[in-house]
Design a protein around this nucleic acid. Structure first.
Lengths: 116, 116
DNA sequence: CAGCATCCTCTACGATACTG
DNA sequence: CAGTATCGTAGAGGATGCTG
């Protein structure tokens, strides 16, 4: 997704929501964190291709947006745990309807490619 | 939104849905078309900053994705009308939950900026 | 191991000029 | 008026090296 979306008054809520899940990895992170707290290392292992820089950046933005809680244990080696806030969990739930529609789309694609 | 999102199996449906509304203007177009068929000129007038090229490109993609129907009247001056398909209307409905969450976020932002 | 800084690439989007 | 073609640009995201 491209960062700066239309701020048209017509789209109101949708735009505000998408602004927050915008970026290549945020929906995936939301999904993973929905199943419980995770450490950065785990997240990277699960998401092949996600660089250290981009992960941190995404998590920081999600933290600022109130979706994610960051818990730093001041030990050696460093340990940080990320988890979803209630607000973040609500967003994940709001995505369920979208996911359902998406599955219908995937079914369609499967059918049309089977026909070729 | 950036075009190429994660194709992680974990995100399945959500990714498939977002792929289709990805781009700066598609959600706005979906919103406008939800209220009825529109001609390209009308759409551009409503969405300030949307260039001719990008509009056509977005509509073509949405047509390919089965969200939009394109009806060409072969007259002079040219007349084309775009409308949502049933599939497209379903997507718009699926976005309702997201919109609701988005409004909650906007309320939050309003509160936090009022506090400053 | 968590995280920051730097450089580079790629592409969606914008601007402009032009056809039928 | 609908649509195409071309060029230029900003910024997200990838790669790499370095710190505590």
């Amino acid at each position: 997704m491209t960062r700066s979306r239309a701020q048209d008054p017509n789209v109101c809520g949708v735009t505000a929501a998408i602004a927050v899940i915008d970026g290549k990895w945020k929906t995936s992170l939301l999904w993973l964190l929905e199943s419980g707290p995770h450490r950065p290392g785990e997240l990277r292992r699960r998401l092949a291709g996600l660089s250290e820089k981009v992960l941190t950046q995404a998590l920081r933005e999600m933290e600022q947006d109130g979706l994610v809680h960051r818990e730093v244990h001041d030990v050696l080696p460093p340990k940080t745990v990320y988890s979803l806030t209630a607000f973040g969990r609500d967003l994940a739930k709001a995505l369920d309807a979208l996911a359902e529609w998406g599955h219908r789309r995937l079914d369609r694609l499967r059918v049309s490619e089977a026909a070729s």
